[in-house]
């Protein structure tokens, strides 16, 4: 049995939750990859098959939480790919494990750097005196704005939507104000109202799909539609581990577990938590791989999975 080989004192779900708790600024995707690395370290496996099923088991446990599903899925998929590509046919399993752990650390380090790379790229687009609209709270948008303010000393104004239902926008405003950025909280329904007065829109993403569109907190699509109508640039800031192999054509195509929290999945009256913004509405994506047009995303995914 695969999970028999996991030591008893280690619970995937607990470790995962603990990771998220310890570092509030960590994305659930990173936490998932961290957890999987821990699983890799703690597990004894004799064959790759066992390793695979152990990891699959762990992924299933992590997906059984109410955190942003899209990032967990893309993060763990990337990790699986990493395991597949790092396999060695001619070495004993123990040695393989050491190499994998070593590479995993480098991999994780790279991922952790990605947010500051993105912040650096977004910097030139934030100009003095500009007005930015953002949706709710996104860690990477937060860091980009803070960097632009503190490191480059730029003065600008940020409109933040309330971001229902959990109102994460409150926290975003507080965090922006803490470093001295002029932040204004607006209602989710006021997006159309403020759009004419902003210069650009910057949002984060939970997942970036193959078409170059994004999956993000509910309301992002509305914002993108408004931005397009008023000819404002709509920029997305997302780390590359959020790229995922999914090709939704409309909102209904999004997987149910992305849209609804666990206990509401059978309830057809439930509110969706995320929506899909098609690539046509996105001006540019800032990623740690560079500034990409939406069409470049599929190129990256093809390079990895082909």
């Amino acid at each position: 049995m695969p999970d028999a080989s996991v030591k008893k004192d280690f619970s995937v779900q607990q470790y995962f939750a603990q990771q998220m708790e310890e570092d509030k600024s960590m994305s659930s995707g990173i936490a998932a990859i961290k957890t999987l690395l821990m699983v890799l370290e703690r597990t004894k496996f004799d064959t790759v098959h066992i390793l695979h099923s152990t990891i699959q088991e762990a992924v299933k446990e992590m997906r059984n939480t109410d955190l942003s599903q899209a990032a967990i899925v893309s993060g763990t998929e990337l990790f699986m790919r990493f395991i597949t590509l790092a396999k060695f046919d001619d070495k004993p399993m123990e040695e393989c494990k050491q190499i994998m752990l070593h590479r995993g650390k480098i991999f994780l380090e790279k991922l952790l750097q990605s947010r500051s790379t993105i912040a650096h790229q977004a910097l030139q687009f934030v100009t003095d005196g500009c007005r930015i609209l953002t949706h709710s709270r996104s860690r990477v948008v937060l860091q980009a704005l803070i960097d632009a303010h503190t490191k480059s000393n730029k003065q600008f104004q940020v409109f933040v939507t309330h971001g229902g239902p959990d109102n994460a926008g409150d926290q975003m405003v507080a965090e922006l104000e803490k470093v001295g950025i002029d932040a204004i909280l607006i209602l989710d329904s006021a997006v159309g109202y403020v759009m004419e007065s902003v210069d650009l829109v910057m949002v984060g993403a939970e997942g970036v799909v193959e078409s170059g569109g994004i999956i993000n907190r509910i309301g992002s699509f509305t914002m993108a539609l408004c931005a397009r109508e008023m000819k404002k640039p709509f920029y997305v800031l997302a780390e590359s581990f959020k790229f995922t192999r999914l090709y939704p054509l409309n909102q209904r195509d999004l997987p149910v577990e992305y849209k609804y929290i666990k206990r509401q999945r059978d309830n057809f009256k439930a509110h969706p938590m995320v929506d899909y913004t098609p690539p046509a509405y996105i001006t540019l994506l800032f990623t740690d791989l560079g500034i990409l047009t939406p069409s470049a995303v599929s190129d990256e995914l093809i390079k990895l999975y082909l």
Binding site: L85, I106, F107, S240, L289, G290, E300
Partner: peptide, 15 residues
């Protein structure tokens, strides 16, 4: 070139 593929396959020596 930075790419997803490289992100996954890199080792410390060619980095």
């Amino acid at each position: 070139q930075a790419s997803l593929h490289k992100l996954v396959t890199q080792t410390s020596d060619n980095d």
